[in-house]
């Protein structure tokens, strides 16, 4: 256990910077997502000449936006949950409970990374139906988000205490 605090500092720094970069990236993908759909309406309704790409591109952006933003949720602890038990238990026990929960989150993140990677590989040769972009480009969002989630889990697990305020990590912006 002695190595935990040692690991904490570097892991937390990486987690913070990954969080900041991901936050910036999802802002960009989200704006692009809105723009893509608006352009789609404009071309169909105003110009009467529909574009083939907005519907597939918007979904590609959607996958990345959702999964990357979800990875921020592990750092900031914003995924909805019932904190009844944590609030009831005394300090040490609630700290242990929080660590167990993080462990569970970590297992799922690892599954996203591992199986997600394999699935992206499995779909490697294939392309999308309408505009033929390579499908791994979309499917890679699962393992990438999984990797970031895992990082944030580790950064939080190595904290000395999870009970104190702010233990859920500073918001990225």
């Amino acid at each position: 256990m002695i190595f935990m605090p040692l690991l904490h500092k570097p892991l937390d720094t990486i987690s913070l910077w990954v969080g900041r970069i991901v936050a910036a990236v999802v802002c960009v993908t989200a704006v692009a997502l809105v723009a893509t759909l608006l352009i789609g309406v404009f071309f169909r309704y105003v110009l009467h000449s529909s574009l083939p790409w907005p519907s597939e591109i918007s979904l590609l952006l959607f996958s990345w936006t959702v999964l990357l933003a979800a990875s921020l949720g592990v750092r900031e602890d914003f995924h909805v949950r019932v904190t009844l038990l944590r609030d009831l238990l005394p300090g040490v026990l609630s700290d242990i409970l929080e660590r167990l929960i993080l462990l569970g989150v970590g297992i799922f993140a690892l599954a996203m990374l591992y199986y997600g990677w394999q699935f992206a590989e499995f779909t490697a040769g294939r392309t999308s139906a309408a505009i033929n972009y390579p499908l791994w480009l979309r499917n890679a969002s699962v393992p990438v988000a999984g990797a970031f989630m895992l990082l944030h889990v580790l950064a939080r697990l190595t904290r000395p205490s999870l009970r104190e305020a702010g233990s859920s990590g500073k918001a990225a912006l």
């Binding site: 009467h48 083939p52 519907s55 139906a129 309408a130 033929n132």
Partner: peptide, 9 residues
Amino acid sequence: IRLRVQPFD
């Protein structure tokens, strides 16, 4: 005519 087609190239 604005025609919905199957979403394939």
